[in-house]
Design a protein around this nucleic acid. Structure first.
Lengths: 333, 333
DNA sequence: ATCATTATAGCAAACGTTTGCGTCTATGTA
DNA sequence: TACATAGACGCAAACGTTTGCTATAATGAT
């Protein structure tokens, strides 16, 4: 039973309103009583009740963030950007981790709204077929996907361009038999990256001999498993474009076990540029994504949308990727 | 303006209580009206308001988790354990990241309680001197530290034993000039680990020649910076015990740049066993901590403490560490 | 037919805030 | 002296729930 405004009012023989106004630095109380109120509030250990406050204000200063996987440094770093920025704006964050489970995603959307968050940031695990989010009634922004009904803002790094840049680099190096080892087949960002590869290959048909795409999930073990088939089948593959950096790490592990020389016998390129990619022992060539900025900007955009009540502007924000050449690719022949 | 219980009641010409009881599967409504209520609730898109509910129930089904750093896979994995378990229990999580900032930690403790969380899990950044948490009035559990007033449960891996095991291993290998490169000097877990080293060295004075401890912060760059002095000063150091795995990665990077051979010229051992430690290119010898289990158990313990209102049992839970020998240490001479 | 029992239903208070409005007192002006 | 003005303060409703209590209706037992 924590102390309430009423307790303070009773103690001092003033009205609730006086206490409330004093606590919220509003006018309508004299300097003198304000000070008395503030003093006894402190003395009694008063803690405002945000539930009650939210009930009348219809604002909770709370945001929901839904991501598939907190262990992937890509999401962890975005989350960091979101959190630090949210803190600056005075928001607290409900973090929800779905493990790529669409059912959990729906459940979180439901309970977040019941808890009256002021907005939601969502990296969805849904595939193309039902990617409209009509069950969301608060302001929300999508990370890395765009719903078919086009009713909300979204932000992403230009995945197609990233795929294109990486593919070009592989061709420049002289790799000719390339495999793409992606994550979930239906994933929007995954598909975009793949289109980037295709575009590059279409532009330079003379430089590419074979190309094939494989899909699994967005984890290291998936890269490890898939690359087994890719590398130990008869076909000669001389470069692998991984759907993200941790998949690439799985590929590298497999190559290590198979005794395949990187980058001479096999070029490997990842996506994301997670911090572990630049370790001297790893030196993974990859496509950089400004992860922290992604989180920062998506949060700023969301608080912006929360502020405007009438006609919200639907924004499509695209950040630039960047090719980082390290030691898992190099000019061959 | 979302639809409320009152709206449903008005629509159906029944009382609020009937609607409330129907929605919460309580007795006191006939099957027939219950069905009617449920049907129109769905039709009107009713979403319960958790703020109002929490106000009267004094329960929010919400927990706060305060950690210093989400980018460190050690905390990320603990967090994952916490989150998945919380989800099973029906709790949502306010995640708060302090960046090792004590002021932010205090602020988060305050706002979490204003938002009426049912409990708090706290990995504190406070140092020894003022490690009592008298400002916390809800059930809470500490990760990796024990307040001087001993008024709450806490959980950790046996850090001293971990330090001891690691030190013994270094001595077994034949390393004689050992440096400890820790994180924050005042950190509880850091100190415990150090004591483990000391204990091992005290037991085998004939096997150790020199030992020195350095402190910085719990990041890769700190390991990188500190090891510069350690390795390029005149003194010969043949093994480094890092305060955690990412510090160890920083050390490895420095050694790489300095052309120091691992493990022949320098043995390196970390702490935590983050997933990147077992990459074939890294193969870091380290002390394993059951991180996911840590998160799972701390969450379970917390919901347990929340349930009992009267005399809470203060628990001290200790999990076992484990020595994982890989390629950054080996028997020399 | 009478009474006890049970199930259904509604009323109203309570949870802890905020805030529009009205009242009162003190001050300043004519 | 009379009156307008402004500042300080309190009242009470509202936010959206839950729940103890009472009233009513229906059922069964005697």
């Amino acid at each position: 039973m924590p102390v309430t405004i009423k307790d303070i009012a009773r103690e001092l023989n003033v009205s609730y309103s006086a206490v409330s106004r004093a606590l919220n630095q509003k006018s309508g109380v004299s300097e003198e009583t304000r000070n008395r109120i503030l003093a006894t509030a402190k003395k009694m250990g008063y803690q405002p009740n945000s539930l009650a406050r939210g009930l009348v204000n219809k604002v909770s200063n709370t945001l929901g963030v839904i991501i598939p996987d907190i262990l992937n440094p890509f999401f962890a770093e975005i989350t960091k950007g979101i959190m630090e920025t949210a803190n600056n704006f005075g928001y607290d964050i409900f973090l929800c981790v779905t493990g790529w489970d669409e059912k959990k995603e729906r459940e979180y959307i439901k309970t977040l709204q019941e808890k009256r968050v002021d907005g939601i940031i969502l990296k969805s695990s849904k595939d193309k077929k039902n990617d409209r989010f009509d069950d969301i009634t608060v302001p929300y922004i999508l990370l890395e996907s765009w719903p078919t009904n086009r009713k909300c803002s979204y932000i992403e790094v230009d995945n197609e361009k990233g795929g294109y840049m990486g593919a070009m680099h592989l061709l420049d190096c002289g790799y000719k038999n390339i495999a793409f080892i992606g994550g979930k087949k239906e994933s929007y960002s995954n598909r975009q990256r793949l289109e980037g590869l295709q575009k590059a290959f279409n532009e330079r048909p003379e430089d590419i001999e074979t190309f094939k795409a494989y899909f699994g999930s967005f984890g290291m073990s998936s890269g490890y498993e898939l690359s087994k088939d890719v590398l130990s089948s008869g076909e000669k593959i001389d470069a692998i474009f991984a759907g993200n950096d941790i998949i690439a790490l799985g590929v590298l592990q497999r190559a290590d076990e198979l005794g395949i020389k990187i980058p001479e016998e096999l070029g490997v390129i990842g996506f994301d540029n997670i911090s572990y990619a630049r370790l001297p022992q790893i030196q993974l060539t990859t496509i950089h994504q400004p992860k922290y900025a992604l989180g920062k900007i998506v949060l700023e955009t969301l608080v912006d949308e929360i502020k405007v009540k009438e006609h919200r502007i639907i924004r499509k924000i695209t950040l630039e990727p960047d090719l980082i050449v390290r030691k898992t690719t190099k000019k061959i022949v």
